[in-house]
Design a protein around this nucleic acid. Structure first.
Lengths: 332, 332
DNA sequence: ACATAAAATGAACACGTTAACATCTATTAG
DNA sequence: CTAATAGATGTTAACGTGTTCATTTTATGT
């Protein structure tokens, strides 16, 4: 393995000079720099990041933590986040992916292992981890879940407003019997969306019925059984808001199975706008969640935080959702 | 930051003893070890991996490389692979995710940055990267695409056999006009699946018609237009094999749009068995691709390779696909 | 040509850890 | 009781890089 000392020997200079030349220190004469760079290239020199890390106290890795890799993290989410990050991040940085639920020793998450940490948080259960990172003084950005703690950089979608727009649209189409299939109760997103639903119902003075709230857990299956429950009601709703698209797809299947036609007999709105939402039959009207934007913005903020920790104040940033009108809401 | 020297001072021993005790070296007396471990715990000691790396020449990171993060990598794929790996990998290891197409300097991929590398390969375009890793003498496992080079550990699904079973099933149901929507021509999987199709047609002595091969690129959209082309034929096929589920979903939509009923007027088989295959309407008959198994097996092999590089010979391992019969193939 | 300042380079140490070798202590054999 | 030996710990160097401070070289002004 080639080291800067080998280059130094070949160039007839000290390894210090090589180090400086390769790091772009302006104090080095142009011709010596050129000579050194040429030799380094010829020798296929590649810096030893462990050594660099040791002395500069930078790890050259940023950590990407999901609440869980196994459960609850929808697929497209993971990809979109990684995409978003990779677009903004320097090639020399490692992007290390993990699930918070699989961490055994919190202590192993320390500032000399991670230059910065990005958390894609789903629920309060992540708070212990988040607080640890904060205490360890590692640059931190939390995405996807709104935090109470305003000292932490936080980027989220405005779920509540998104739902509000959707409900207002449904009402404008003449719907009055509005139901909701809820998400995992331990996920903040579920309660946010529910609150949006309730808010707009109240604002529009539409009566809220308890039997029109059915719980789900964000899986397709749970959407299926939730819709079954709603259809079994003496007076079923005319429109159902599903807390995510997966459940909406489950709900559609429940309708098919019972011969209930969409949107004539049952209207449906999802949340997320996953790739397949466009290709259900009929195409799913849904609330687009700007995951790519969130992760891009979050990564930019993380980089700021890493570069000038003192200079960047924590903020709570909201990224707008968008109602995508397709074919699952009828006008009555 | 606490170092082993701090612990040494507190325990009244040398830092070497601390290092040995913490690394489970049996030469250390039990009582001193206990004392040291206790102090280390009290002081919240966490080892500096950069320093460890520098001297042991291990990076404690394994690299996960996809052909591309942006294009062509289906979502569920990425998640399943990461899941599979995380289940087998030690917590202290970083899992660093990248796209091969975004690598600027091949030289930056060196043995002191990665203890092992896992490549999820789609096409020949990855060969330059793969060869570099091989030359750099980094433990390597290539998943998902069959390699010519038998000196490299390789885990793939038996796509060809999978397709064969599916086609034989379709024929057994009475189908004779069989068509295929192909995948991205630069992806090995596409040609493998096509070959499986042709093989079984020949074996069953069913005439192969050129107009029954339509090209796609694995996107839903391409499945849509490919099916449109097939339906416009003077004599459309009775059954279409789609090289992946996404295109099958596109194809279904094309049928809906034209009022062609599935499976009565058109039968359909997909490939992958993505989550939503079960929830299309009617439910999609497809070939299950065991991604989780592939990545688990691949990771185990990589670990073997890292632990005893001399002792483990390169193999080409096949993981079986499985035909999942649902509702999109009619019996005629 | 000389003094002086500025620019360029080098020597030595530091980062936190492991490892080879040396030393000390306790145990055993004779 | 002493020598030999095993067991436990310590000393020192090494890994490859960046950085402080000292030193040499070059440029500047008179």
């Amino acid at each position: 393995m080639i080291t800067i000392k080998d280059i130094a020997r070949a160039a007839g200079v000290s390894h210090t000079t090589v180090s400086r030349a390769l790091n772009g220190n302006p104090i080095i004469k142009k011709e010596t720099r050129d000579k050194i760079e040429k030799i380094a290239a010829e020798l296929n020199y590649v810096p030893n990041f462990s050594a660099k890390s040791l002395v500069t106290r930078k790890s050259f890795t940023i950590g990407l933590f999901f609440s869980s890799i196994d459960q609850g993290t929808s697929e497209s989410f993971l990809v979109d986040v990684i995409k978003g990050i990779k677009h903004v991040l320097d090639e020399n940085y490692n992007l290390s992916v993990s699930g918070i639920d699989s961490i055994q020793h919190l202590d192993s998450i320390s500032s000399h292992r991670f230059d910065g940490i990005l958390v894609i948080s789903q629920s309060d259960a992540d708070n212990a981890f988040i607080n640890h990172v904060k205490k360890a003084n590692i640059p931190l950005v939390v995405l996807n879940r709104q935090l109470e703690d305003s000292s932490i950089m936080n980027v989220v979608a405005s779920d509540r407003i998104g739902v509000k727009e959707a409900i207002e649209y449904a009402i404008s189409q003449g719907h009055r019997r509005l139901a909701m299939i809820e998400g995992r109760p331990d996920f903040k997103s579920a309660s946010e969306r529910k609150q949006g639903f309730i808010d707009s119902m109240l604002a529009k003075q539409i009566p809220i019925r308890n039997e029109y709230f059915v719980s789900g857990d964000y899986t397709v299956e749970s959407g299926f059984s939730a819709m079954n429950a709603l259809l079994s009601l003496p007076e079923p709703p005319s429109m159902v808001l599903c807390s995510n698209d997966n459940m909406a797809i489950g709900a559609m299947n429940a309708c098919y199975a019972r011969g209930v036609s969409i949107p004539e007999q049952m209207s449906l709105i999802g949340f997320d706008d996953i790739v397949f939402a466009k290709y259900t039959n009929p195409a799913l009207t849904t609330i687009h969640r700007p995951i790519a934007d969130i992760s891009k913005l979050g990564t930019q903020k993380l980089i700021e935080l890493m570069n000038k920790p003192e200079d960047t104040a924590a903020e709570q940033l909201f990224v707008k959702t968008q109602l995508i009108i397709r074919q699952t809401v009828s006008s009555i």
